[in-house]
Amino acid sequence: MDKIELINVSKEIKKKKILEDINVKFEKGKIYGLVGKNGSGKTMLFRAISGLIKLSGGMVVADGKVLHKDISVLPSLGIVIENTGLYPEFTGFENLKLLSKINKKIGDKEIWEAIKRVGLDPADKRSFRKYSLGMKQKIVLAQAFMEDPEVLLLDEPTNALDEETVNLIREILLEEKEKGKIIIIASHSREDIEYLCDEVYKISNGRINVKRGGESNEEMV
């Protein structure tokens, strides 16, 4: 996928504007950062891009195809939303296998490797409900990476992770960027934004009002 364009994207819920006239372009081979206060609309923007919600106005165009008109979801997407889990009664491997059956793009081997890549044991027999917070975050990241998607939307990807794993995830994201993926991360971590992002957008009250690109992103966070 070469680019994703948001044109006048708006979302209203019970007469409250959650997103308002968002105009943004995301291109391949770059990592974009999204910063903003709690409740500013970051997660809602991710849901809008991923096709999980219907827009009140505007459109999301992915390589010329309009979301909810030509396509219902982005054709190749890996997503992590903060505080959303997987099926609690299944193991990490079983969870990913279940999700992989939807598009049938990958087999057990790819799932195994995705779990190992984030530093977990694919043979772990514990169910998801017994995982620690960090382990849950890792397995959710593994499900985002496992099908080698062209677009990655990651909401607080390094949440609850130890320093070693944070470095690991950063390396993975840089590898994915080299492969030409479109990567958008939302984070409160200044270090993540500084280290990873080529461009940073600040979202406030549902509007993107500032954009910074280049080396220095300090004033954004």
Binding site: L52, V73, P75, I81, N95
Partner: peptide, 14 residues
């Protein structure tokens, strides 16, 4: 209920 985001972000035709 759970994993709805990860399930439906993959469903091309609901």
């Amino acid at each position: 209920c759970c994993a709805s985001v990860y399930y439906f972000s993959r469903q091309k035709n609901r």
